[in-house]
Design a protein around this nucleic acid. Structure first.
Lengths: 198, 198
DNA sequence: GTATACAGACCAACCAGTCGGTCTTTAAAA
DNA sequence: TTTTAAAGACCGACTGGTTGGTCTGTATAC
């Protein structure tokens, strides 16, 4: 409901009507409408942060790390599409105390991606002339924006979309000699490997 | 104010206080608070649509077209940062009649970008294995997301950021042989050329 | 003298949150 | 095993503050 009509476009009465509960019940479980908004935010960012952490720990190679982070993130769209929409649309309405807690986790996630890119440059796998910070935000933007248009079921599965993103991003950041010929195919993590067990 | 606190986080009274006007004055110029939201949306999308149209008309070559569209779009962040934030944050609160008018222009803009990419593939400049639709959305996302983090003055100017985006995107979509050596530098439109007169 | 621009007190609707109360579960006491 | 009392879960009518919008009145421009 928040995804479609926005936090202020949905009343607590509508929520309890839809869920077949009551106002009393709602305020028994949540201290406020704002807390519900926080819970939605927290559920998503906690999940994706954990997945991304495992992704970086699973792979040693920066190129693989980068792929794994992107794949794992894009995959969440199937499960958390609504959460993600709320996460990016309604953050301004989070009360400061809640916002701080979310911001911390969001920054951690960003840092994971940023580290992978920094390591990729240091390892000589990525181009020297890409700025780490802007490239991080560019990738983040490309991937995050998916919430604006992705819908299930579409002409492409979320895994296919993830693979396309990886392809575009790798072509953007890898050194030219890594892309030519068979080398590139070897750099791609296989679909077996990518489903590293959580 | 809408950028910082959201459409529902700002009351009409706050608006007229801030502008030193009155409620009567406000409702003399706007039929409703919703109309103000529409005007903000419309001002930005109309501007950027015109710029993008001129950009495509100015260049014949798809690679140049793509660059020009991105450059011209990113440049608007200096002027329209607040508008853009509202445009992407508060769209759900637009009344259907308003939303339809905005959607039309937004789709036109998307189409301009999509056409450039399609033409690039057809002309053999861009890689054959990039899907036009997803690539369009990827680029759109990368660029649009800027509103979430860009602030003036930052460590990089908006033109620098635009150039980085162009570099990343061209590496992502151009064929491998266009990137190696001096060829790539020749493909970049010069800063003189990019300020094609409007 | 008519239309436009603006002012600000006022109002009706709406909505998050409250509060007294009921039903159900739990677990200790008899 | 039965009784009982306390805690937890849930209900929904009600309220007080807020807010978009109105309306009457005034000043200025043409």
């Amino acid at each position: 409901m928040f995804e479609k009509h926005g936090f202020h476009g949905v009343t607590v009465n509508q929520i309890v009507d839809k869920t077949g509960t009551s106002k009393g019940g709602f305020y028994h479980h949540f201290t406020s409408k704002d807390e519900l908004l926080f819970v939605i935010h927290d559920a998503f960012i906690t999940y994706v942060l954990e997945k991304a952490t495992i992704a970086t720990e699973t792979f040693a190679n920066p190129t693989e790390k980068l792929q794994a982070i992107i794949k794992v993130f894009v995959k969440t769209f199937d499960l958390y599409k609504a959460h993600i929409s709320v996460f990016y649309q309604e953050t301004i309405y989070l009360k400061p105390a809640y916002e701080n807690r979310i911001k911390k986790k969001r920054d951690q996630f960003k840092q994971i991606l940023l580290n992978a890119i920094r390591e990729g440059k240091e390892a000589g796998e990525f181009r020297d002339d890409i700025p780490v910070d802007i490239t991080t935000m560019a990738i983040l933007g490309m991937v995050n924006w998916t919430y604006k248009w992705y819908q299930q079921p579409g002409t492409k599965t979320i895994d296919e979309i993830g693979s396309i993103y990886v392809d575009l991003i790798l072509h953007a950041v890898l050194k030219a000699d890594s892309i030519s010929g068979d080398t590139y195919q070897q750099l791609l993590i296989s679909s077996v490997k990518q489903d590293f067990h959580i």
